[in-house]
């Protein structure tokens, strides 16, 4: 369950932003989670309230933006969408794919006051 420690990192990023941009309370947190990032968005939601408790983001709403997994197929020379690292190219069935998107996760934006 590394989602818990990732959520601690989210909190650190929020606290850094609170110091820099001078806000006292976070109402909404938007996280972007890639389909190939290796985290379970549900587990992230599960940890969110527990980790944010007592912080500037206590009681905030978590909004998760899902980003699709994208890969470049060496055989087709085209970009295709994949949902897991073991997926084949939907056009030609090849596994010679280079992941080009959806591997990351980031704190996008905050609604603050």
């Amino acid at each position: 369950m590394h989602e818990m420690s990732l959520m601690q990192d989210v909190l650190e990023i929020i606290e850094d932003a609170a110091r820099e941009k001078k806000f006292g309370r976070v109402k909404t947190v938007w996280l972007e989670i890639g389909a190939l990032s290796g985290v379970d968005p549900q587990a992230m939601s599960f940890c969110f309230d527990a980790v944010m408790q007592g912080s500037v983001a206590s009681g905030a709403i978590l909004e998760i933006l899902h980003k699709p997994g994208l890969a470049w197929c060496m055989k087709c020379g085209k970009q295709v969408e994949i949902s897991a690292r073991f997926d084949a190219c939907e056009l030609c069935g090849s596994f010679e794919l280079q992941v080009t998107g959806g591997g990351g996760m980031r704190v996008k934006e905050l609604e603050v006051e």
């Binding site: 990732l6 990192d9 989210v10 650190e12 990023i13 929020i14 932003a17 941009k21 806000f23 109402k27 996280l31 990351g104 996760m105 980031r106 704190v107 996008k108 934006e109 905050l110 609604e111 603050v112 006051e113």
Partner: peptide, 17 residues
Amino acid sequence: MSQSRLVQVERDILSKN
């Protein structure tokens, strides 16, 4: 008037690590 605002963060969660 008190109003909430949006703050762009755009930081990878793993950026600290």
